[in-house]
């Protein structure tokens, strides 16, 4: 089956693809805002969100002034010292997040890959571009698990893979829409 070029598709098909990509764009922007608001995009905030090492466990974190514990092993604190708990992703929630995100991310990456395959880009560029959305999502979650169990430095992997996901989507968005609307069928 020989596929027609993107530029040669009927208007309705072009609209379908463009609307889908625009919707994904909004999804990506919302994801970025959500990450910024609830997780933070600094190394420190990523470590605080995902790491289990050297963390105060068991619920709300607190600070205290170093007063000795009482005979029941309880540390005195004041209300001002009770710190609001930042959003923390424990292992159970991370596994659930990974499960649902990677399934959906895989399907969406597949569709983006099909669109890349459909473009008139040279084969080498297609080979380079198609795996990127898959890698971005997978390495993103790999980084979260590695921060949790291996080392805080893997927070850089989360940032890098998130950037990769966003960048690869932007490239696909621009290339596909260019071929849909601005290039002439050969």
């Amino acid at each position: 089956m020989k596929l027609p070029p993107l530029s040669g598709l009927p208007l309705s098909a072009k609209l379908l693809v463009t609307c889908f990509l625009v919707t994904l764009s909004f999804g990506n922007v919302a994801a970025g805002i959500y990450t910024q608001k609830y997780v933070g995009i600094s190394i420190e905030s990523l470590v605080e969100t995902y790491s289990e090492r050297d963390r105060e466990h068991g619920g709300a974190p607190h600070t205290h002034d170093g007063s000795p514990a009482n005979r029941f092993g309880e540390t005195p604190i004041t209300l001002d010292q009770v710190r609001e708990m930042k959003h923390h992703v424990d292992l159970k929630l991370l596994l659930q997040d990974a499960h649902v995100h990677l399934f959906s991310h895989g399907v969406l990456s597949m569709f983006l890959g099909i669109l890349v395959f459909w473009t008139r880009l040279p084969e080498k560029w297609k080979i380079a571009l198609i795996p990127l959305p898959f890698l971005g999502g997978t390495l993103d979650f790999a980084g979260m698990f590695l921060v949790k169990f291996a080392a805080d430095a893997f927070a850089y992997l989360i940032i890098a893979s998130g950037t990769l996901t966003g960048t690869s989507f932007v490239v696909v968005f621009l290339v596909v829409n260019y071929e849909l609307w601005f290039s002439r069928p050969q």
């Binding site: 596929l3 693809v17 569709f111 099909i114």
Partner: peptide
Amino acid sequence: KENRLGFQAITLTLALA
């Protein structure tokens, strides 16, 4: 015919995604 095949392929993939 090629255009229809392309449109069907797109629609199906979008729907699945």
